[in-house]
């Protein structure tokens, strides 16, 4: 009975959740009241400009920093008070990882594998060989790209239920990036693991993400299924004479030099665009993710 209850408990606890999460350093606010639930089995791509607070959000979600307000939870337990059973289920790769520079690749894997009960030795050695990573080289002497690949193999080898990657593709070449995306996509689809990754390479996100979250100046502007971004949002361009009839609820608004206005609008509950789009001279453009990102983040 107890086990059943716990099972049910685990099933309904989202892998990651944030309530009113806020953080700041020395007077500068980095995160403002973030509310977020990452559903099990989803691949959430976190997108935002440099300095939007993506890394800070990921670290706050995992309890790697003490937030100034709010709380983050990992599989239902407070992120700062996780126990080892929760820790076993998580893997995190920071941006530009530099840990354990004094060990060789082989030693690092030997060291870490001792702590993870479900460590996949075969996957680790296969993938290291396939990604052409020298096992007996010191980690500190690897190039940034190699270093990141090693960390990604490390993270995947621990067979996590929750994988958090900070800018995983930044130092990877296109082939390695594609391989990583494939691994993420298949693991999410088959093993049902939850993945959260931050990036500013939008095409990566469009391939593998099932959901997308926009972080802008420490605020979460948008969190929805990735297909929705293309079907539910569009850019509305209004000429100068119609600028006054701009819909009131818009995600972003830009005024151009000639008096015209472009706004990002959303379909309403019945799937209709705001009234204004039917007027003559008004243009409605369906946006790709990259354009939507630029529109919102600018």
């Amino acid at each position: 009975m107890n086990a059943l209850l716990q099972d049910a408990h685990e099933r309904f606890d989202p892998p990651l959740a944030a309530r009113g999460l806020g953080h700041g350093y020395e007077g500068a606010t980095v995160l403002r009241c973030i509310n977020l639930d990452v559903a099990p089995g989803s691949v959430l791509g976190l997108i935002g400009r440099n300095g939007a607070g993506k890394s800070t959000l990921l670290r706050a979600l995992l309890g790697l920093l003490e937030p100034t307000t709010g709380e983050a939870r990992v599989f239902g337990t407070p992120a700062l008070a996780m126990d080892d059973t929760v820790r076993q289920r998580i893997a995190y790769v920071p941006q530009q990882p530099e840990a354990l520079a004094w060990l060789t690749v082989e030693q690092m894997f030997d060291y870490l594998s001792r702590f993870y009960p479900s460590w996949n030795h075969a996957f680790a050695s296969d993938t290291l060989a396939r990604w052409q990573l020298p096992e007996n080289k010191l980690l500190g002497k690897l190039s940034p790209g190699e270093r990141q690949r090693v960390e990604l193999v490390r993270a995947l080898s621990s067979e996590p239920d929750l994988l958090v990657l900070d800018e995983p593709a930044a130092a990877l070449d296109p082939v390695a990036r594609r391989e990583l995306l494939r691994e993420i996509a298949l693991r999410a689809g088959e093993a049902g693991i939850t993945v959260l990754f931050s990036t500013h390479i939008v095409s990566d996100l469009e391939r593998v993400a099932s959901e997308i979250a926009f972080l802008h100046e420490g605020r979460l502007l948008l969190h929805c299924p990735v297909d929705d971004t293309k079907e539910r949002y569009a850019r509305l361009w209004l000429p100068a004479r119609l600028a006054s009839s701009t819909p009131t609820s818009t995600l972003s608004r830009r005024s151009h030099a000639d008096g015209s206005v472009s706004v990002v609008v959303e379909r309403d509950a019945h799937g209709r665009w705001p009234e204004a789009h039917a007027q003559p001279g008004v243009r409605l453009d369906v946006l790709g993710l990259e354009d939507l990102f630029v529109e919102i983040a600018e």
């Binding site: 298949l186 999410a188 689809g189």
Partner: peptide, 18 residues
């Protein structure tokens, strides 16, 4: 299969299922 398509194009299997 969904897996083949997802693996070949490195896209989310859920997208293929959909």
């Amino acid at each position: 299969s969904v897996r083949e398509v997802a693996a070949f194009h490195a896209i989310n299997p859920m997208t293929v299922s959909r």
